[in-house]
């Protein structure tokens, strides 16, 4: 293949494609990712409001959908990973899950087509909230000294070794946990969006500009591949919302546990 033509004509997608200029012209601040956050928040809020309004013993379709969605987070995330005490944290976990899921899935919704969670500020903010919650739960439950003692000084190690190990335990719990929560979500969404852009824009370029039998065949394969990848991306988007929520729940569960 003549790579020089590719290098001249095709501008491959990159981090620049994640920068949006304001929607309403220069001087305004409102960008597409912000629009997606507003729409996503409204969607989740309105859906659960309508589902919970006039709740009856025999649920209608909408109430059933709302209860199933909420029940999923309650049963397979909160109760499974925290236990009975997990009931108290279902509202937070459910909000977290559906907020992330909706912002992720915006990446494959026509017209929007951008996962707002690929902008690091959103996952970072959510990870910081999760971090504050599980640490304050641990401090409240085990006391300030007790919590950090259980975290940094696991019994069964000769005391001089603690000098070496305690800072690592502290760092891994208080710093690395929220950082990995944030980065895992951000870059799963970032990479997924980049791959979709590459397949779609590359396919379009091959079909339209590169042309010839090679361009038509390769472009068609690329565009067909982008359809498969869109479905795959949808799966990853829901999975990552689940993983973020699940790990937050497990951290809360760990903080509730008294480690003797």
């Amino acid at each position: 293949m003549d790579t020089s033509v590719l290098a001249e004509g095709f501008v491959s997608p990159g981090p620049g494609d994640f920068e949006y200029s304001p929607l309403f012209g220069e001087g305004t601040f409102f960008t597409k990712p912000m629009l997606i956050i507003v729409l996503g928040t409204l969607l989740v809020a309105v859906f659960f409001y309508l589902a919970a309004r006039r709740a009856t013993r025999v649920p209608g379709k909408l109430q059933f959908a709302g209860e199933s969605a909420y029940g999923f987070v309650r049963n397979s995330i909160a109760l499974d990973s925290i236990g009975k005490e997990g009931m108290r944290y279902v509202p937070y976990l459910a909000t977290l899950f559906f907020f992330i899921a909706v912002l992720n899935v915006a990446g494959i919704v026509p017209v929007l087509q951008f996962p707002a969670t690929s902008r690091i500020a959103i996952p970072l903010f959510l990870a910081v909230i999760s971090c504050i919650i599980f640490n304050s739960i641990g401090i409240k439950r085990q006391g300030f000294v007790g919590y950090f003692k259980a975290m940094m000084f696991p019994p069964g190690i000769p005391w001089p070794v603690y000098i070496l190990l305690a800072p690592i335990e502290f760092f891994s719990t208080v710093i690395v946990r929220p950082v990995t929560l944030c980065l895992r979500l951000t870059f799963n969404m970032f990479a997924g969006h980049l791959v979709l852009l590459l397949f779609i824009l590359g396919g379009e370029y091959l079909l339209r500009d590169y042309g010839g039998p090679v361009g038509v065949v390769a472009g068609s394969v690329s565009l067909l591949g982008s359809i498969v990848l869109t479905f795959f991306e949808g799966f990853v988007q829901l999975l990552q919302a689940y993983v973020f929520t699940l790990l937050s729940a497990l951290y809360i569960g760990g903080a509730l546990l008294d480690e003797h």
Partner: peptide, 22 residues
């Protein structure tokens, strides 16, 4: 399986933390 997920990330976090801290 969930515990496995958390443990995997926990182990990763400990190794990374060790290298970063010291």
């Amino acid at each position: 399986a969930r515990k496995g997920e958390a443990d995997a990330w926990g182990a990763f976090g400990l190794v990374v933390s060790g290298v970063l801290v010291w």
